[in-house]
Amino acid sequence: MNSIEVKDLNYRYTKDGEDVLQNINFTVAAGEWIAIVGHNGSGKSTLTRNLNGLLAPTKGEVIIDGQLLSEATVWDIRRKIGIVFQNPDNQFVGATVEDDVAFGLENRQIPFETMHERVAAALAAVNMTNYAQKEPARLSGGQKQRVALAGVIAINPEIIILDEATSMLDPQGRQDIIHIVQDLQKQTKNTVLSITHDLEEAALADRILVMEGGHLIASGTPREIFSQHELLQEAGLTLPFAMDLAVKLNQAGIKLPGTFLSSKELIQQLWTLRSKM
């Protein structure tokens, strides 16, 4: 079953404006982890806002979980999608952190007891239990991002969209968040769309979609995408650290076969090479 189907999607902000999304076609299977990459202004965020009806396609169709997105279905569809925005200040509504995390559950009329459990579990998952009674506005940027994520974890929607959701976290915090979502996905098979500039994170995805100038210019596994150097250049992207290092080692005369998505793979290869002395 496809979780997301996008057919010939075009979008423009004003009637006489330019199409900021042009002829986008892709499908995402239920339970897939997709990274969407591309430089600022390439249309990534506009695309995700078309998936839950925050923006309405100028042309084309969006089908979520078999349901065509329309005025009649938009509320059903929004129940299935949780978005963590880049700047959490744009999505806080509660007076305290726990109120805020509970907001989505209240909207879904979850019983009080269950709601308490789920809020507590979500805050524990993002390591923010001690802040349950604080005012969201008084948290630091990274803490806010954790709370926004907890709001989505509490709902556990079929589709989780992370719009640069870890951009303000420290490296450890960033890894923690990715692990939390990975664990959740393992248990409940959520579909994850992650808009990211972090190529190490993109390398962990099942599939990468590359956006450029409102077009979807490529789609493939991380290994396929990162081996296309011209494509990366065109989309203004760099290589994940391990691949970049392997390319530079090659230039320095150390020949390494294959592509290395993770440091682990590359270290293994270097170790093998060294032990051939």
Partner: peptide
């Protein structure tokens, strides 16, 4: 993993500089 690093490098360039002498003539 047993590689020698007298001083930890901070950049890719410094890392390569420290690494190549330990690998040269071995990738051929």
């Amino acid at each position: 993993q047993g590689f020698e690093m007298s001083e930890l490098p901070m950049t890719t360039a410094a890392l390569i500089e420290g690494l190549t002498p330990q690998l040269e003539n071995k990738g051929k």
